[in-house]
Design a protein around this nucleic acid. Structure first.
Length: 249
DNA sequence: AAATCATGCAACCGCCGAAAG
DNA sequence: GCTTTCGGCGGTTGCATGATT
């Protein structure tokens, strides 16, 4: 006889104080993790994900609530310029703040602010520049299909990463050839940092020490403000790992 | 005082990668 | 090697609340 597993009807919407209390007590006695079990055993009619989110964003000890300080705001702006929408990474630099909070703060306060500050009439030249950028990006995509492009046109920072690991032989060869060509074209001012064209704010920074493997270089391409990219680039070690074996997400 | 609009934020959704079976 | 489950992430939605008309 077939036994059907019936999915319990899961609750949605805002958490009630009594639900918070149940979850808090459960996690404090059994520990974090295993969220699917938490939702079943605690008696909460919530999904595991919902429990995890509630704990992480609201109930966890040492959560800092209330207004962001000027220092926190500055850090968010700088980190966002450097990393883009990597909210969990940015939040990791702000003790007590959650990724959700940072994301919300950016979307409601800072994003608005930057739009106002950057507001000016779009000129013909801007349109031309944007078209050129799009064209270059498309060309780049065709010539380096292994690159991951996450940059929307006009974003403050563009971050690409090449990684030959887990790729086919043909792709690996393509990368090696391409990197050789790139390196031949670069003026190397410093073994770690190649600045292609400081006037146009394009710079490439390579981190061979991330992997210790020439086939597995992580390359970051910044299309804005090389100085900030340089000063803050150390954060990338955190962002992409530096265990000498693998480059994380 | 009531209706409408704007804003902030908590929570949900869908996707992805890793681990387990 | 395939499938399933779980955790984590960023994007998005929708509700509550305050401001404005």
């Amino acid at each position: 006889m077939e036994v059907k597993r019936v999915k319990p009807h899961l609750k949605k919407n805002l958490w009630k104080p009594e639900e918070d209390l149940i979850l808090k007590n459960y996690v404090e006695t059994h520990g974090e993790g295993n969220w699917a079990t938490v939702s079943r055993r605690s008696g909460l009619m919530r999904g595991g994900k919902s429990c995890r989110l509630r704990w992480k964003n609201y109930l966890r000890p040492n959560i800092k609530r209330g207004e962001m300080s000027k220092e926190e705001e500055d850090l968010i702006v700088r980190m966002h310029k450097l990393l883009g929408n990597r909210w969990s990474l940015i939040a990791g630099r702000l003790p007590g703040r959650t990724d959700n909070e940072v994301k919300n703060y950016w979307n409601t306060h800072l994003n608005k602010k930057s739009l106002i500050m950057g507001k000016r009439k779009t000129t013909e030249q801007d349109h031309k520049q944007r078209e050129d950028n799009d064209e270059n990006m498309n060309r780049e995509k065709k010539s380096r299909p292994w690159c991951t492009h996450s940059e929307p046109s006009g974003s403050a920072i563009c971050l690409r990463r090449t990684r030959s690991q887990s790729l086919g032989l043909e792709e690996r060869n393509m990368i090696n050839k391409d990197q050789e060509k790139d390196q031949a074209e670069c003026t190397v001012a410093n073994p770690w940092i190649n600045i292609d064209d400081p006037n146009s704010f394009n710079c490439e920074i390579e981190y061979p020490m991330l992997t210790g493997n020439s086939n597995n270089n992580a390359r970051f391409v910044f299309d804005d403000e090389p100085l900030i990219a340089y000063l803050d680039s150390f954060i990338l070690f955190e962002a992409f790992g530096c265990d000498g074996e693998s480059v994380g997400k």
